[in-house]
Design a protein around this nucleic acid. Structure first.
Lengths: 270, 270
DNA sequence: CTCCGGCCTCACGCGACGTGAGGGTCAAGC
DNA sequence: GCTTGACCCTCACGTCGCGTGAGGCCGGAG
């Protein structure tokens, strides 16, 4: 330690000294030398780079423009005067920055949506949910579904799909759900028997509709049917459409499952 | 043209078909295959990649996460389930995006400052200018200076320095200018003669103060002195400090220039 | 003379592909 | 059966601005 202080090397500064003064890495100085952007005016006999005051001035200008995000070619053009219209170049750069900010904002919004789906099960606000799914909708349902699913791959895939759906697509799903609810109510009223062809068709339709919502196996559908009947919130909703619907639906799903070789009493989520 | 339509290749889709469906480049598919992120389940005898429905599902998930800005390693972790906590990864990514937006905003602000300096000669608003330089300040001056300088390298360098100056530094310059103005007024009152040692010192001080403002040669200073006297705006300002100051200053600069071997009658800008 | 910190010149690595080069494959039309 | 033209394959280098060693020379202090 105790090398000669900077000031006494009046001929020029070495890379390390310049690095400290301008807060750039030594490697960057080497690079700028390599590509001819900023070469030192002097070298010692041993080949050490020595930057003069004039060199420092140029380096400083490079640092300024680099902090503005210009790439080295554009900086070279500016410093060498071949860019007649510097303000135009700056404005172009400004536009590019604005674009990149925009892109990042969209990206952030996408991430927010995905995060929201993972946290709350839906990306819509409570108001939007009510507007789409109707006043009967219980905002707790998605969260409850999430409790069931936990951190399974199934849930991940649901989240991915949910996050990439537009509000219009949500509306389409909500319409399909409403249609289905009506059809189920009509079936109960018409006395359709669980296990009948008609009931099985409705069960399949339910699986399709909610399959667009999340990946739904027959086993899972059985569990869902039982939840509809057992959970007060769900039961109230379905019985509100038509008295006895919750139970009718559970029995229909069970029958359909049995028809597909599944024992509804041992079915599990997953 | 007239290749077999996609649907008939029920075994799987070729790279081109997948490329069209998922809007990714063929090269990206090759790359993902190379690094083992998404390899096709099948190959034809000729070595053509064939992506099955399952492959497509995985590819689709990759596209989703890629659009969220995750790098391929993280996507791999998510898809292969080795990332237990996907929401945490998403939030980390979100934070990174926010940071990058911040950085870009600062960068944009820097560009705006630089552009403002190039367009109007100063980066301060008219109010800030008045607050710093006092009520006598004429907001047109920097623009007028720009007219003179045009698009020279000199002006570029001035702009760079101006853009990287903080308001505090501007205040320091304004203080120095005010001090100088007072000193010039005092000199006129004290009857200091142009060409005297005292006058020369003041001329030098003027050159230093404005040298911090923009690079000022002695020749340019001569032109500036003449402008102070000839331009009604400038003249009013200086004569307002002390009657006759504009003329006194022009004569002092001329004398100082002559003392340095410059003919003030042939001096030019630049 | 030795030591240690600084300097030098290669030269690979990064991240996610783009962009040819050079050559095989496939279905259709003649 | 042959040509044609779109499509596919595998290398392999280029991108952008350096980071990060490896291996070795230089220079001043003790």
């Amino acid at each position: 330690m105790g090398r000669m202080p900077d000031a006494t090397l009046a001929e020029g500064l070495t890379v390390g000294q310049v690095s400290a003064r301008l807060d750039v890495t030594v490697r960057a100085l080497h690079h700028w030398d390599d590509i001819g952007l900023a070469r030192p005016s002097l070298r010692t006999r041993a080949g050490y780079r020595l930057y003069t005051a004039g060199d420092l001035e140029r380096l400083h200008r490079i640092v300024v423009y680099r902090e503005l995000g210009l790439d080295l070619d554009r900086i070279r053009a500016v410093l060498d005067g071949s860019t007649v219209d510097l303000p135009a170049a700056l404005r172009a750069q400004r536009a590019q920055v604005a674009q990149r900010i925009d892109r990042l904002r969209q990206l952030g919004a996408g991430l927010d949506r995905m995060i929201a789906v993972h946290e709350r099960g839906l990306l819509l606000t409570v108001e939007q949910q009510a507007a789409i799914f109707g006043p009967e909708w219980n905002p707790d349902w998605p969260a409850r579904a999430r409790q069931r699913y936990g951190d399974t791959t199934q849930w991940q895939q649901y989240a991915e799909r949910a996050a990439s759906r537009s509000p219009e697509e949500w509306q389409a799903i909500a319409d399909a759900v409403a249609d289905l609810d009506r059809a189920l109510g009509d079936a109960v009223e018409a006395g359709v028997a669980p296990g009948s062809a008609e009931a099985n068709r409705l069960v399949e339709r339910h699986r399709e509709v909610f399959g667009a919502y999340f990946p739904l196996t027959r086993q899972m559908q059985v569990c869902l049917g039982r939840m509809y009947e057992a959970d007060p919130g769900f039961a109230a909703h379905y019985d509100g459409i038509r008295a006895g619907l919750a139970t009718w639906f559970r029995r229909s799903v069970d029958a359909s499952a049995r028809a597909h070789g599944i024992d509804p009493d041992t079915a599990t989520w997953q």
